[in-house]
Design a binder for these strands. Structure first.
Length: 284
DNA sequence: CACCATGTTCCTTG
DNA sequence: CCAAGGAACATGGT
């Protein structure tokens, strides 16, 4: 489930496993997944390069690579799209059906798998340029949010999905943070008061922090031994799904009672995507 | 068959 | 030029 918290958890997980490992081989199973980089560029750059550090920016994973010799450090950029996953598997284990890119590292394979192929692993870092504020950074404030919302007449829910405004919030956490802040998802961005902006910033930071904390405590069920079980993916394992779903207060809970006021949760469509909210707690 | 799905990007419309 | 809306991408689950 890749929004900011899931990517953060994945980055923390992969870091210790990948640091100082050297790429020995590159298998590209889907050209689309590395676009616009070519297979040849991928091999030329990555073979012989060592993982120096792994960072996150919004929903992107940044793998800092040190090539052999005196060549400059470069970045391998990853994005999970809707269904991407990454994991390490012993080489003898069969690759998942939708493996898109495999980096061979000694006795393990670093596998990027992506059922719908919306994600990417590329040497082109251009996508990072258009990203807005990092919501968990200290600089993210109510005043700053108010500034970037500007005069927009778009609904606040839709605006929260705009990565050039706040970077890293996706469809699940957009609904969750607005519920926590008590703001209607339909409210025009420009109509949010200073108080609401300040409250929304706090709600965003608390919601994301809690999701990271929660996900970090969920058993990852990573054993690398077989097919799907070896893949990082919480929300799917029995243990993980339980912990995780309980923390979502409105998302995917249409018709259920609001935990705070007991009104039934509603689902509406905004920008062609589902929005969940409580009509009692989030008045227009 | 119908509809739904954690995301981004491109094209069109106003 | 810009903001906003909608389709496309691709596969699978219910």
């Amino acid at each position: 489930m890749p929004e900011l918290p899931e990517v953060e958890i994945l980055v923390r997980y992969l870091g210790p496993l990948l640091i100082n490992k050297v790429v020995r081989g590159v298998q590209v199973h889907r050209k689309k997944s590395i676009r616009p980089t070519s297979l040849r560029q991928m091999r030329d750059q990555l073979v012989g390069a060592k993982f120096i550090s792994i960072k996150r920016r919004a929903k992107y994973l940044l793998f800092e690579m040190q090539p052999s010799g005196r060549k400059p450090v470069f970045t391998l950029l990853g994005h999970l799209g809707m269904t991407g996953r990454m994991c390490l598997q012993p080489k003898r284990v069969d690759l998942p059906k939708h493996a898109a890119l495999v980096l061979e590292l000694g006795r393990h394979n670093f596998v990027f798998e992506d059922t719908r192929y919306f994600g990417r692993m590329t040497l082109d870092t251009g996508s990072l340029d258009a990203l807005g504020t990092e919501p968990m950074s200290p600089g993210f404030s109510g005043e700053m949010l108010r500034e970037v919302l500007g005069r927009s007449r778009q609904a606040i829910k839709v605006k929260l999905l705009d990565q050039s405004v706040v970077a890293g919030i996706g469809n699940i956490y957009a609904s969750e943070t607005l519920f926590r802040a008590g703001i209607s998802p339909r409210k025009a961005a420009r109509r949010l008061t200073r108080r609401e902006c300040a409250g929304l910033v706090v709600a965003i930071q608390e919601t994301l922090a809690k999701a990271i904390e929660c996900g970090s405590t969920v058993p990852l069920d990573f054993n690398g031994e077989g097919g799907r079980n070896g893949l990082f993916y919480f929300g799917q394992t029995d243990e993980g799904a339980g912990y995780y779903d309980e923390e979502l207060l409105v998302y995917d809970r249409e018709y259920e009672s609001c935990a705070r006021c007991n009104n039934p949760i509603r689902r509406i469509i905004q920008a062609a995507r589902s929005t969940y909210y409580c009509p009692g707690c989030q008045r227009a």
